[in-house]
Amino acid sequence: MANNPIIPNGPKPKSIFTTRNILLYGTLLIVAIYYILPLYVMIVTSLKGMPEIRLGNIFAPPLEVTFEPWVKAWSTACTGLNCDGLSRGFWNSVQILIPSVFLSIVIASVNGYALVNWKFKGSEIFFAVLLFGAFIPYQVMIYPIVILLREMGLMGSLWGLVLVHTVFGMPILTLLFRNYFSSVPEELFKAARIDGAGFWGIYFHIMLPMAIPIFVVAMILQVTGIWNDFLFGVIYTKPDIYPMTVQLNNIVNSVQGVKEYNVNMAATLLTGLVPLILYFVSGKLFVRGIAAGAVKG
């Protein structure tokens, strides 16, 4: 949008404390509290000791700050099977995340590029079905995929899950890249063909360097999505390589023992930390990612 300063003609408003402003900012303040309060409650709870939690008010700040729940959540909390905390899940998630993000983005970016610049007979139909695939409930495809992975010997393995993430990330990422590449002037592609570059030459020398921002957007989208996944993790891996979300659920919702709310909250925060940090660091790009993925879908 152009930066057109609007020059008011009438008399300048006298005060910022107009009824309109009080109402507007008041409403926004209440809204902000609704959204931010749960995060606040989590943080204060995770810093309290259990006796204080049992007696006190969830909104009250901790009288005595303790980091013990965090330490316990990370290294010794029990999932019912083992007691080495979330750290195992964290590293599992990292190991799942890196190849999944890489593979899904590579494939989707090549798809998007091929769909825009190298249309072949039926390519549009494949793309339409691919997009439609984004709306099929996962439950419909879950079991046959179990069979496929078993046949390939990948069931319960990390690479099986990587493959699943690549497949289910494909529709939205392909759409993202296709939309981006179709905004690149076609003449650029034509010029490169005259210059003798082929399919891969144009991809690596012309398209890839231009698409860096959209790669970042895709990365944010995928890191968040894959890190937050629960369903595929629980189905396609086995307990010792469960991703963090699955482990978190097992820790918090395990029926054995006394509920340690402070440890649970610390564990929950730890799991949410990666996407949260990514969200606050990436800021506008995150918004752009979800908007690009959603609006044009």
Binding site: L28, V31, Y35, M42, T45, N228, T268, T271, F286
Partner: peptide, 25 residues
Amino acid sequence: NTLRSIILFPFALSFVVTGLIWQWI
């Protein structure tokens, strides 16, 4: 921008995390 960040941040969290937060509240 601040307000938008606050309203949107839960979207970055997983359903598991969301569920556990509200279970507690």
